[in-house]
Write a protein that binds this DNA or RNA. Structure first.
Lengths: 111, 111
DNA sequence: ACAATTGTGTAAGGTTTCCTGACATGGTTT
DNA sequence: AAACCATGTCAGGAAACCTTACACAATTGT
């Protein structure tokens, strides 16, 4: 209802392509996963699958690492950022809920 | 200059994922390529790489085939559609050219 | 100062995924 | 009837991916 979740977030890209697109080594990509900075999905057979969003994230990560930031630190930053993101999400939903309560669409008996 | 060519057109998806996303068999997907309905890129090693746009196209193709249209016919349709598309493109560029000639931005000596 | 951790390379051995080519087949066209 | 269409399937081989392990310089923590 809230989300259009388009191409950008679909996990459909294999690690080789990610390597080519980011310039990182597969080793690095897997290591950042081990440090829980990215979370690819897996194919039934076990192959990693990334999204374009993941790729963008990887580039950001790589930049920070180049600036001497440790994975540990990066992870903290990311959790921080996500927390704020969630807070906004919650506020939005609360407001939406209130609006619905006041003027809300009733659930029609059928489509 | 005209094109933002985003995620949708980047050829980054392997045939297995395309199979899963479309429900077509790999055999079918390769066959439609043989009939020149789709044009994946290749990895250095020879693996096919598709875009989301390709996937959408494949679904359309599959629908037509289900309606009994032959690949040959589908190809004609596609060429037709593309021709019109190109005509529009040309017109657009012509008009743009005229505008530039009249009021045009001159090429500044530097950025 | 020394121990522990970080980030990355590399190699081995194994599994999954993809490739081409070929044969088979039931429906359509011509 | 001969040719073509669309698809399945099988074989053999290559590419891509996986995990585990060892190495090592550089940095961080005690």
């Amino acid at each position: 209802m809230t989300n259009d979740f388009s191409y950008k977030d679909k996990k459909v890209i294999t690690i080789g392509i990610v390597r080519d697109l980011t310039g990182l080594s597969e080793r690095q990509i897997r290591y950042y996963e081990e440090r829980r900075l990215i979370f690819p999905e897996r194919s039934p057979g076990g192959s990693r699958k990334y999204s374009f969003a993941d790729i963008e994230l990887l580039v950001e990560i790589a930049n920070k690492i180049e600036d001497g930031v440790q994975t540990h630190e990066i992870r903290k930053e990311m959790l921080q950022a996500q927390k704020k993101q969630n807070q906004n999400e919650v506020r939005r939903k609360m407001i939406q809920g209130q609006l619905n309560a006041q003027f809300g669409l009733r659930k029609g008996p059928s489509s």
